[in-house]
Amino acid sequence: MTPQVLTLVAPPGGLAAAHIAQVREALRALGAETDGPVWLAPDEAADLPFEKLAAEQATAAARRALAAAPVDAIAQPAEGRRKRLLVADMDSTIVTTETLDELAAHAGLKERVAEITRRAMNGELDFRAALVERVAMLAGLPLSALERTWKATAMTPGARELVATMRAHGARCVLVSGGFTYFTSRVARKLGFHEHVANTLLDDGRALTGQVAEPILGREAKLATLKRVAAEQGLPLSATLAVGDGANDLDMLAAAGLGVAFRAKPMVAAAARARVDHADLRALLFAQGYRAEELRR
């Protein structure tokens, strides 16, 4: 079996020697040979190289050993862990909010729209139908609401470091969203993504028409974007990293060399091979073996 590595990541100051000892004991109980820890960031992130155990088994064992501790565990082959392509979802991943829900707040419809969003992102509703329904509710909303929503949109901690560090090491960075180009274009410019792909809200020059331009980008388009950009860059999918939180991200997460469910909806977290529930987006850099001193802003 090829050499593997288990990366443990916690919010700053949250990773203790006791956590590492618990995980090492759990791996050894399953017959794994472990080394380390190799600290990537003091009291925050560490690698545990191991052999004679599959990554999936190691991840499950680590999560059981950690129990309720706020520590994330990601296991993968040690070779090729630094990825050359990042494809990232926007809403509730690169930014902290669902921008459509926040836009709906300006029409007094946030709670109604947010409930539809929640169900769609958890796979309970068809994505396309849910998007069309929510946008139709915003017909007549003045375009000024878009700017007000953007001004209130915050980047997720670690997002800037994620993009800047991967770019500095030669990776292509793409923002792909079932949301809207009004927001993805601004996020891409702010953080340094090379490219952004999203849906387009239609307007009459003064207000939203309540329609979305065709074709509507959904689950299949996110996967297609991952494959397209990888092919354009001459990369195998094993050299790619994808991150997202909703059901429409699942296909691209499954296809990427490292697919990470970030603070994801329950059904997405359950299905993804890797997930980050506690740390910020820098966890994706630590999972690739970057040390704290290598991170860029």
Rank of each mutant, 00 (worst) to 15 (best):
V23T: 09
A287K: 01
L27I: 06
R24F: 00
A46C: 13
R297L: 13
G244Q: 09
I116F: 06
G246F: 04
T200D: 13
T209S: 11
A168S: 14
A168V: 12
M1L: 13
Y182S: 04
E25L: 14
V23S: 01
G80A: 02
A62C: 05
Q211V: 00
E220A: 15
R275H: 09
Q57V: 08
G178R: 02
E220P: 05
A62E: 00
V197L: 15
T240H: 00
A272P: 08
L175R: 09
G158N: 01
P236C: 02
A292F: 01
V163T: 10
A21C: 02
E293R: 12
A61L: 06
T153V: 14
P236W: 01
D35S: 14
F50G: 05
A224Y: 04
R189N: 11
P142V: 01
F286E: 00
A269G: 14
L284C: 05
Q211T: 15
L100R: 09
G218C: 11
A188C: 04
V174G: 14
L66D: 03
V132W: 02
L138P: 11
P49K: 00
L103Q: 06
P37G: 00
E214D: 15
M252C: 10
R128P: 10
G123K: 12
F180W: 11
E44Q: 15
A18M: 02
G170I: 09
R82D: 01
A171Y: 08
K227M: 13
K151A: 15
T181I: 02
V135D: 06
A75R: 03
M1C: 10
D204K: 11
G80Q: 04
A65V: 05
E161N: 08
T209G: 07
R282Q: 12
P266M: 06
A264F: 03
D101I: 04
I94H: 07
A65W: 09
R275K: 14
H194F: 02
S144T: 15
P11F: 03
L146A: 08
L175I: 02
G80R: 04
L48Y: 06
A230F: 06
E294P: 10
V95A: 05
C173L: 09
T97K: 12
I74N: 05
L162D: 03
M121E: 01
E294F: 09
Q22A: 15
D203C: 13
A45S: 07
T184Q: 11
L6R: 08
L226N: 00
G31H: 03
G218D: 06
N199Y: 03
E79G: 12
R118P: 05
R148A: 15
A88T: 10
E25N: 12
A188E: 00
G246E: 03
L258V: 15
H19Y: 09
G31I: 01
A107W: 02
V163R: 04
A274E: 07
M155I: 12
F127D: 13
G80F: 07
Y290M: 12
A292I: 10
T2I: 11
S238L: 07
D43M: 13
R82C: 08
D47H: 15
A17K: 11
S92C: 07
L109T: 07
K110S: 06
A242V: 00
A68S: 14
T7G: 05
A41H: 13
M267K: 14
